[in-house]
């Protein structure tokens, strides 16, 4: 019989690991900013919150590894989790502009979610079932409705079709 203390304990994400992931995230955000035509001086993010988000998603990665006999989260679920935590923690903010930050955070969350959908669908030889209406509904929903991590992951799966 195993006792609780026989099971492994979570070890904080290593400095090297989080640096690697933060650098990749930063590069992605830089590309996104350029693609969406946002000036570098116009938007900032809370480093503490983003690092925490990276670790929270990493923990879920480990959870899947341990409990679901899988090699961590697939990319669709991971993108969904980033989407959830950005909506929750609102790490992005406008600088020098009187604009609502919650809309900015919803757009960034939706961009990551959408990119994750297309990336995953293409990798699996499938398609994304999304049109302008779905897109606008999601944007509204991400701003005003309640979402759970699991609901966003399930939503993502339901938008992938043969």
């Amino acid at each position: 019989m195993k006792n609780i203390k026989d099971y492994p304990k979570y070890e904080k994400i290593s400095k090297e690991q989080i640096e690697l992931m933060a650098a990749a995230f930063n590069r992605y955000l830089g590309n996104m900013r350029e693609t969406l035509g946002v000036n570098k001086e116009d938007v900032a993010f809370c480093e503490e919150a983003l690092l925490e988000i990276i670790e929270l998603v990493w923990k879920r990665h480990i959870y899947f590894q341990v409990f679901h006999k899988l090699n961590g989260l697939n990319e669709l679920k991971e993108a969904s989790l980033y989407c959830f935590w950005i909506l929750k923690m609102q790490p992005f903010a406008w600088l020098n502009a009187v604009k609502p930050n919650y809309k900015l955070n919803s757009i960034i969350a939706l961009q990551i979610f959408t990119k994750g959908l297309y990336f995953y669908a293409e990798k699996k030889g499938k398609k994304v079932n999304m049109n302008k209406l779905t897109f606008e509904e999601l944007y509204y929903s991400f701003r005003y409705r309640d979402w759970s991590k699991e609901a966003i992951m399930d939503l993502a799966s339901s938008l992938i079709i043969q």
Binding site: H61, N71, G116
Partner: peptide
């Protein structure tokens, strides 16, 4: 033990945003 019905990740150690940054395609 319950096996999750999602498809496992091929390269779990590659940071997601690395893969998304390099991705050009149907998006």
């Amino acid at each position: 033990n319950r096996v999750h019905n999602s498809i496992a990740r091929e390269n779990p150690d590659e940071p997601l945003f690395e893969a998304l940054s390099n991705y050009k395609g149907s998006y």
